[in-house]
Simulated scan of single mutants.
Amino acid sequence: MRALDDIDRKIIAAVQSDGRMTTHELAERVGLSPSPCARRLRLLEDAGVIKGYTAIIDQTKVGLPVSAFASIKLERQREEDLDRFAKAVALWPEVADCYLMTGQRDYLLRIVVKDLKAYEQFLKDKLTRLDGVASIETSFALGQVKRSEALPLR
């Protein structure tokens, strides 16, 4: 992948703010004609810089108002234990985000559910049944101050 230039950054910033705009609208916004703009966009997609396009859904309006943040400590941090945990978590739709962490905990998960009972069920049916989990500490979000998928490119 070649280094990103100013036009690439403009394209990325534009599609981060509105992934549904047409190629013509994108071209106007970044100061290119449509054909070169489409080619650059395709190169960014092919290189994996732009991984896909998605809608941002209001989790409360679809009946999933609770965000729980679970800090997970594993019994051991061997590669096979980390891989097993990551593969299991990848299959659970309630887990919106999962990060491998430094520090006292091994993973941080954002779990999205409809209520506390649903979180309890998630814990009992999935998280506590996974081999190798030593401890789980959960905090619940009271409100969302900021959420963004847009990266600060400059």
Rank of each mutant, 00 (worst) to 15 (best):
A3M: 06
A3H: 01
D8L: 02
D8T: 08
I12S: 03
I12A: 04
I12D: 04
V15A: 02
D18K: 08
R20Y: 06
R20M: 10
T23V: 15
S33W: 00
P34E: 15
C37N: 03
L41E: 06
R42S: 15
A47H: 04
A47L: 01
G48R: 04
I50L: 02
I50S: 06
G52N: 10
G52E: 08
Y53E: 13
A55S: 14
A55I: 12
D58H: 07
Q59Y: 08
L64C: 07
P65Q: 05
P65R: 05
V66Y: 01
S67E: 06
A68G: 04
A70F: 00
I72E: 03
K73Y: 03
R76E: 12
Q77L: 04
R78L: 11
D81A: 14
L82R: 09
D83H: 07
R84L: 05
A88T: 14
E94K: 05
V95K: 02
Y99R: 07
Y99M: 06
L100M: 09
T102M: 04
T102A: 05
G103D: 06
L109S: 04
I111V: 15
I111F: 00
V113N: 03
V113E: 02
D115K: 04
L116F: 12
K117T: 14
E120H: 10
Q121R: 14
F122N: 09
F122G: 06
R129F: 00
L130Q: 14
D131H: 13
V133C: 05
V133M: 02
T138D: 01
F140V: 15
F140R: 04
G143I: 11
R147A: 14
S148Y: 03
E149P: 01
A150V: 15
L151F: 11
